[in-house]
């Protein structure tokens, strides 16, 4: 592999990783606050793809992007209110099963509404523009994704570490009852978590699908699983962990494909999951797992 191709692959990997990171944050944050693996997150991401297709048919892309983000946020929050909130004091398994149900519901709904055939994802012209730096060339979206990811992650970490609402989110993730005693509205904080997770998934979907060109009702499944692995790899519950996990998975996938092991690249992700769970279940950045009472 020549140096130029190596750099080229790095760029592709980091770009894919950036999109993964944005999705992985949603898994991680929801787990941090509800101890729930939100299986529906992958399908929220898929629906964001369809939102773009339909929005672009009536609006220019500049307006479509905020519409897609807003639509995805509404969907994410509605799912929380309808399928998870009523189960707040139910055993953890019930809410997990509810999440699996929502995931299938969204896939079937999308099949019913949009058919199982791939639908073309609209091209956003500026994102597709080719850029050359020396001998390396790629579309703008490839350069933009990691940069945008890093900016969004910094904003998110600032929100969590430095603002009052972020402080409340960290408190709620540890102890509901004591948070209530402080006057914190638990349900608003949980909704906010879904707002952030869904908005980032919407941005991730734009970046991801722009490179892939089509959406099917099952487009969320595989990236969703990979991002879940990324979140576990980084230490589920930790935002920086999810980001590092996303980049690692994106890079390793790209290089496996580049080296000719493309059939093995998906299996690798799951092998990684098993290895982490066996040897470092708290992930790279995770704190000790502790059960919430």
């Amino acid at each position: 592999m020549s140096f130029v191709t190596f750099i080229q692959h790095c760029l592709t990997g980091v770009s894919l990783g950036g999109a993964y990171a944005l999705i992985a944050i949603g898994y991680s944050m929801v787990y941090g606050i509800l101890l729930l693996i939100n299986f529906a997150h992958a399908d929220i991401f898929m629906m964001a793809g369809y939102f773009m297709i339909f929005s672009v048919s009536s609006f220019p892309w500049q307006i479509s992007i905020p519409i897609v983000i807003l639509g995805t946020v509404v969907l994410g929050v509605l799912i929380e209110k309808a399928a998870y909130m009523p189960l707040r004091s139910a055993p953890r398994m019930s809410i997990m099963i509810s999440a699996i149900g929502v995931s299938y519901l969204l896939q079937n709904l999308a099949t019913y509404l949009f058919s199982a055939l791939p639908q073309a994802y609209p091209a956003i012209p500026p994102l597709k523009r080719q850029i050359r730096i020396g001998e390396v060339s790629a579309s703008l979206v490839t350069f933009l994704t990691p940069v945008l990811t890093i900016i969004l992650v910094f904003l998110l970490i600032f929100l969590l570490r430095k603002t009052k609402i972020g402080m409340a989110m960290r408190a709620v993730s540890k102890d509901y009852d004591t948070s209530k005693l402080m006057g914190i509205k638990i349900n608003s904080i949980i909704s906010l978590t879904f707002v952030i997770g869904s908005a980032l998934a919407a941005v991730g979907s734009i970046l991801y699908f722009t490179d892939r060109m089509s959406v099917t009702p099952f487009s969320g499944v595989l990236p969703g699983l990979k991002c879940f692995v990324a979140a576990v790899l980084g230490g589920i519950g930790s935002v920086p962990g999810a980001v590092i996990g996303g980049f690692l998975i994106g890079l390793s996938e790209t290089f496996l494909v580049a080296l000719g092991y493309s059939t093995f690249s998906d299996a690798f992700t799951f092998l990684l999951l098993i290895l982490i769970l066996l040897f470092r279940p708290t992930g790279l950045m995770g704190e000790d797992l502790q059960d919430k009472v």
């Binding site: 009052k164 402080m167 409340a168 960290r170 408190a171 993730s173 540890k174 102890d175 704190e287």
Partner: peptide, 12 residues
């Protein structure tokens, strides 16, 4: 709140 600093615990 074990994950918050002393000051943050007071502010919350």
């Amino acid at each position: 709140f074990p994950n918050l600093t002393v000051r943050e615990n007071l502010l919350i």
